[in-house]
């Protein structure tokens, strides 16, 4: 499961812009602020500022879109999984991502936006999703590395969201996080086993790590200095830890795991900083990141077209189920009369 740790405006075509000042009723606003300050929870029927509602819908729906688009890169290997055990694990894992998307769409629906409206945003290209899924899965090792690193990065992001100020989002995240640790562990374990195998297998793992490492670091979003909306998200309790802090936490946690696995991380600047008590790391290529976010990565068009096709091809099935439910209800009413 994968959140975008940043919250990109869906159609600003680029960097985040600060929100306009509030024009809400000052009394209601004050009560809302007080509840947020007291670390209280906001529930669907409570009053909330429009900007809070809009930000949440955008963030939760981007998160949900990321889950269902995220089914595709790993789904790419289900049919070719190299053992029946790994096949079952992978199906269960990709299925979970679908479940996470579903929990999140449901959470966003409590804010008055329907799933169809959100899907329309995705399918029309207006809505964003995590840019990590616009990269291809080229070998079986990518499946393991996505579990270990991509899910690992996502967990860093998502654990704090379990305490998010919006009740339905927080509850969805609790459910998601419970299921998530299976995802990271299965990925890491799959890699551990491959590293006991043939030289080709080991090379496959290292190659996958090389291709995914920097993309995972970018998943945490732009540096805090370039994320004006992050501050507002923190103020509202829908973002609990800053991008850079989460990224650092991820690097610190991952370096020893890489060592146990026996792979190197592709960053010559990666080294322990005794003074900071953290690992230093090199420059992330933000130009590439924004290109991919804005639609020009290697798989953006394929991912989106695949989702649109599944939705369009399923229209007759969804219509049939509704038509049948209506017919059945009409028959029952007639029989009761």
């Amino acid at each position: 499961m994968y959140t975008q740790s940043f919250n990109v405006p869906d159609n600003a075509g680029g960097k985040t812009v600060p929100l306009a000042p509030s024009t809400e009723d000052p009394v209601l606003q004050a009560a809302f602020d007080a509840r947020i300050d007291a670390d209280g929870r906001i529930e669907p029927q409570d009053w909330m500022p429009e900007a809070y509602r809009k930000t949440l819908v955008r963030q939760i729906s981007q998160h949900a879109h990321s889950e269902i688009v995220g089914m595709l890169p790993e789904g790419n290997w289900i049919s070719r999984a190299p053992s029946l055990k790994r096949k079952a694990i992978l199906i269960a894992k990709v299925q979970d991502e679908g479940g996470h998307g579903l929990y999140l769409y449901s959470a966003a629906e409590t804010l008055g936006t329907s799933r169809d409206q959100m899907l329309d945003g995705l399918h029309s290209g207006r809505a964003k999703y995590s840019s990590i899924f616009n990269y291809p899965t080229l070998t079986w090792a990518d499946v393991g590395v996505i579990g270990w690193l991509v899910d690992g990065a996502a967990i860093m992001n998502q654990v704090p969201l379990c305490r998010c100020s919006y009740g339905p989002y927080a509850r969805a995240m609790v459910r998601v996080c419970k299921e998530e640790s299976f995802h990271q562990r299965q990925g890491y374990e799959a890699l551990l086993v491959m590293m006991t195998g043939t030289d080709e297998q080991k090379a496959m793992v290292q190659d996958a790590v090389n291709r995914w490492w920097w993309k995972c670091l970018a998943m945490f979003g732009p540096p805090d200095a370039d994320s004006p909306n992050s501050a507002l998200g923190m103020r509202w309790g829908i973002k609990r830890v800053s991008n850079d802090e989460l990224r650092q936490k991820f690097v610190d946690a991952t370096v020893p795991q890489a060592k146990v696995l026996g792979v190197t991380l592709p960053d010559p600047d990666l080294k322990w900083n005794e003074e900071r008590q953290h690992y230093d790391y090199g420059q992330i290529d933000w130009a590439e990141f924004w290109e991919t976010v804005n639609g020009n990565g290697p798989c953006n068009k394929e991912r989106l077209a695949t989702r649109v096709k599944a939705h369009n091809d399923g229209q007759w099935v969804r219509d049939a189920a509704l038509a049948h439910a209506a017919k059945k209800q009409a028959r029952e009413m007639r029989d009761a009369a």
Binding site: L102, Y103, S106, E109, R115, A172, R175, R318, A321, L322, H324, A325, K328, Q329
Partner: peptide, 12 residues
Amino acid sequence: HCGSLHAADAAQ
């Protein structure tokens, strides 16, 4: 209560 979902009818 554990969540919600979309379905065409109760059985589904």
